[in-house]
Design a protein around this nucleic acid. Structure first.
Length: 367
DNA sequence: GATACGTGGCA
DNA sequence: TTGCCAAGTAT
């Protein structure tokens, strides 16, 4: 599009990279996937952490990261694993397409003999987009690029006092962010500069109540000068989430197994396991309607309802529980799944909530 | 460009 | 309790 205002937006003053890097040298966070100063980063560790950190907090990621690294110390180990196992380890972390792409990416990288080091090649890999490609290039390979994540968008919006709302302002923010590293100090330390921006966003330039008084960039921050820093970036209001309802059935056999089925490989919770249930629709299910959809004609006991909030809708699930009589093992349609142990199942958070409503274990589940 | 895609913590 | 937010990507 024609940049009608380009002559008005004079080249903004670049902030002082050396001030940020000096702050980082003192205040950098210690994180399991971060190499220590002077150490060569492991591209596998950088990649694995970046995928996990997409739209996910550091706190939530840490234990998953440690578990993945101990199960799969190298990208070759991950590539050799069955997808099932990877989904099992990922269960609870959310955005399961990331786990499927992670596995596919590990196989591609293994075929290639290692991680590519250029932006263009990284961008061709599954699960790696504009942000992650730059993060890996900068952090693992020292390429002088600026990864633009939510932190960097926020820092940039405040620094240049950009009041256009997200997500429409994303290209503009990216354009400004790309010039943040023009100083020689930033060019010399691409990995530190990228991570310094993340740490600044996570600990100083926070979404709420930013600590502008201790910010290494406070003197250059136009948002602070204009008194609007804490309110930026602006965001266009989100649409209200629709509500959906479903009913799910927790059916035990007599071998510590429950009836489980695997969801279709793509889409919502793709490839993950669930206890069988009804469709998720906008109307509640009557008890009669629900029991007509049950996998077996047994004595179902209502255990309650869970609430689960997805990105784009809120879900209420009624949970019924029963134990199959000893002589009733046949006659369950395979479309409801098969009896398996939860120990090796890939149960997403919403299903873990359903299972949490189960009656306490009793050694004698008397039918 | 808009929408689908999870989850848990926090004000 | 409700809404916002977190190192985004794929289609």
């Amino acid at each position: 599009m024609f940049e009608m205002r380009s002559f008005v937006i004079s080249a903004p003053v670049t902030p002082d990279a050396s001030a940020l890097l000096r702050w980082y040298d003192t205040h950098r966070r210690v994180l399991p996937w971060r190499s220590l100063p002077g150490q060569r980063p492991d591209p596998y560790a950088v990649w694995l952490s970046e995928i996990m950190l997409q739209q996910t907090t550091v706190r939530a990621v840490i234990s998953y990261y440690e578990r993945f690294l101990s199960h799969y110390p190298t990208v070759q180990d991950l590539a050799a694993a069955p997808l099932e196992d990877v989904l099992h380890l990922w269960a609870g972390l959310g955005y399961y397409a990331r786990a499927r792409n992670l596995h596919a990416c590990a196989r591609r990288v293994t075929e290639m003999g290692g991680f590519p080091q250029t932006l263009a090649e990284l961008l061709t890999l599954p699960g790696i987009g504009a942000y992650t490609a730059r993060a890996i290039a900068a952090i693992a390979f020292g390429v002088p690029v600026v990864p633009v994540d939510g932190n960097v968008e926020r820092v940039t919006a405040r620094l240049y006092s950009i009041e256009d709302p997200l997500p429409a302002s994303r290209p503009l923010l990216a354009k400004h962010a790309a010039r943040l590293n023009t100083d020689q100090e930033a060019q010399d330390r691409p990995s530190d500069f990228a991570q310094a921006l993340f740490d600044l966003g996570a600990t100083i330039c926070t979404p709420r109540n930013p600590s502008c008084l201790t910010c290494p960039w406070q003197k250059k921050c136009m948002g602070l000068k204009n008194g609007v820093a804490a309110n930026l970036p602006l965001k266009t209001p989100k649409q209200a989430k629709p509500v959906r309802y479903g009913v799910h059935f927790l059916l035990h056999d007599h071998n510590q197994n429950i009836l489980l089925r695997t969801r279709p490989p793509k889409g919502l919770l793709g490839g993950m396991d669930e206890i069988p249930g009804t469709e998720w629709r906008s109307e509640r299910w009557s008890p009669a309607e629900a029991l007509a959809a049950a996998p077996a004609l047994v004595n179902w006991v209502a255990r309650g309802e869970i609430k689960h909030v997805f990105t784009h809708f809120t879900l209420y699930l009624m949970v019924y529980e029963a134990t199959l009589p000893a002589n009733h093992n046949a006659g369950i349609d395979p479309s409801f799944g098969a009896f398996r142990t939860t120990k090796r199942a890939a149960l997403p958070g919403v299903m873990q909530k359903c299972l949490s409503l189960a009656a306490p274990e009793t050694d004698a589940e008397t039918p």
